[in-house]
Amino acid sequence: MWVSTPAERIIALYQSDFSLQSFNADEVVLCLTMSAFIGVVGAWIAVNRHISDIELQ
């Protein structure tokens, strides 16, 4: 919604037949799943680094 008006202006300037489409349900679930996985992996890396720092002291 936030991008549609500026994008439509640019599309009109270039006289293109390009159109914006929203995500379908499968794509939303995939994005959320990937985001959660990346978050878990990042947290795991951070925790392991902190634990190794504590163990070295």
Rank of each mutant, 00 (worst) to 15 (best):
M1N: 07
M1T: 03
V3E: 00
V3C: 04
S4G: 00
T5M: 08
T5N: 09
P6L: 05
A7D: 01
E8R: 06
E8F: 02
E8G: 05
R9N: 09
I10C: 04
I10N: 04
L13Y: 00
Y14I: 08
Y14W: 08
Y14N: 02
S16Q: 05
D17M: 04
D17N: 13
F18R: 05
F18S: 04
S19E: 13
L20H: 02
Q21Y: 01
S22G: 11
F23C: 03
A25T: 07
D26M: 04
D26W: 03
E27D: 10
E27W: 00
V28F: 09
V28A: 02
C31K: 04
C31H: 04
L32A: 08
T33A: 07
T33K: 10
S35V: 05
S35K: 05
A36T: 12
A36R: 11
F37S: 15
I38D: 09
V40F: 10
V41D: 02
V41H: 08
G42M: 09
G42H: 03
W44L: 14
W44P: 00
W44T: 15
W44H: 13
I45L: 11
A46F: 11
V47R: 06
V47H: 03
N48E: 14
N48R: 14
N48Y: 12
N48S: 15
R49E: 15
H50N: 15
S52K: 12
S52G: 03
D53S: 15
E55V: 12
L56W: 10
L56M: 10
L56H: 14
L56A: 15
Q57V: 10
